[in-house]
Structures are given as structure tokens and as C-alpha cells.
Amino acid sequence: MSDALLEVRDLVAGYREPVVGPLSFSVRAGEIVGLTGPNGAGKSTILRAIIGSVRVFSGSIVRRPGTRVMVQPQRPFRLPEMPITGHELLHLTHAKDRDAPAALQPLLDPRVDRLSGGQFQLLQVWAALGSPCDLVYLDEPTNNMDPGTVEVLGDLLLAWREERGVLVVTHEHEFLDRVATTIVEVGA
């Protein structure tokens, strides 16, 4: 095997029937790999196959032994009343709040149910990105974000990309053009 943290080869995945593939790509430390394509192309299905929650019909998914993974979900969990602070959220993933970028500092003290959708999404991405893992999967991380917050997210990814490999699923081409080292078109 190569030095890749994640190696996907000729992957065909789906549910009862195959819905996406074959697709091949790899993610190494320091790389930001973007999976993109139109709605319904199967981007999130590829990610779910890598996580192990949908059926793999053929091909292989190999994660380097010992690789620690964090997954930021497409639909963040937040109850209408959610008495957890930003600091506590970061502690869950062992992300260090002292390392959190300046844009995130005002988000750490309030309860997360007092944040906007975009702010909470940004905090979740940082909780994943700032954790001591080797590989981060981000599923539609720009959801709920205004252009300014997307800009901050891009800065975060670029500033921390040397630390780990990142696989980003998104339909936002402009965002990927800015941050990704490799772009993989799904359903092309």
C-alpha cells in the first residue's frame, strides 16, 4: 500500500442497487480531497460507504492501520434546548480551545443553542479539525453558512491542512476551487 491514509479503488456503492461508482481516489496527510457533483450524484453515498454504513458492491476501501478518523455530519445534531458550551463541544473531541482561531473565540462561551446555524456548523468543523486525528471527513461543511463564514471555514482548512488529511463532500465548486488539493467529480 502507498503512504495514503485512505485509498479507495474502483468503489461501487449503494443501497439495494448500486447508485455510484466505480470511483478511485486517495487521501494523504496534508491533502484536502474534494468530492463534488450535482445533487443526487452519490457524493454522500461514497462517504457513507467509506464510513461503513452503506453497501459496497465492488472495489476496495483501505484505511492505513492506526489512522484515527473524525466525521463531521451533514446535518449537525442540535436540540432546540442544548445546554452545552463551545468549550465543552471542543473538549469532546479533544480539540484545544486555546488553539481555536480568533473567529471562533466568541463562540466558545455561549450555549450552542444560542449560536446561528452557520456558527454552530463552523464550531463543529473546528471540533473535528482541531482534534488529534489523522483523517477528517466533512460532509457538506458549508451548509447553513453565509459567505463570510464560508471564507473563515476555508481559512481554517488551509491553515490546518498540513496536520492531517481531509475529505470534503460538497456541491460548492467555488469553495473547493479555493481549498482542495484534488477534486474528484462524482457522477461525471
Binding site: 464510513i51 484515527r68 478518523v69 473524525m70 466525521v71 445534531f77 469532546l92 473531541t93 471540533a127
Partner: peptide, 9 residues
């Protein structure tokens, strides 16, 4: 908050 993390590991 990160429901897929256990399975992904």
C-alpha cells in the same frame, strides 16, 4: 454530535 465517528473508526 459526531454519530458516525465510532463506526468510521
Amino acid at each position: 454530535f459526531f454519530p458516525d465517528t465510532f463506526r468510521a473508526n
